[in-house]
């Protein structure tokens, strides 16, 4: 997905997939905090203005248990 996004011109850093076990609370918090920080630095999605009604394309952190 990241490679496809990059090819389409979307910064692949905007997508994150991480396996976090349900027993790893602190790690989950860390992953989410780091990622939200990163997104904040990257700024609004370049796709956001084309569909103003929609929310910006945020990332996705997946939780597995």
């Amino acid at each position: 997905m990241r490679k496809l996004l990059a090819f389409s011109g979307v910064d692949p850093e905007r997508l994150l997939l991480k396996w976090v076990s349900s027993a790893e609370g602190p790690r989950f918090a860390q992953v989410v905090t780091e990622f939200t920080e990163k997104i904040r630095i990257l700024g609004p999605s370049p796709l956001a203005d084309s569909r103003t009604a929609k929310q910006p394309t945020a990332g996705m952190a997946s939780e597995a248990s």
Binding site: A6, F7, S8, G9, P46, L47
Partner: peptide
């Protein structure tokens, strides 16, 4: 990257 996005 921005050129790719613009293109697509």
């Amino acid at each position: 990257l921005p050129e790719r996005l613009e293109y697509w």
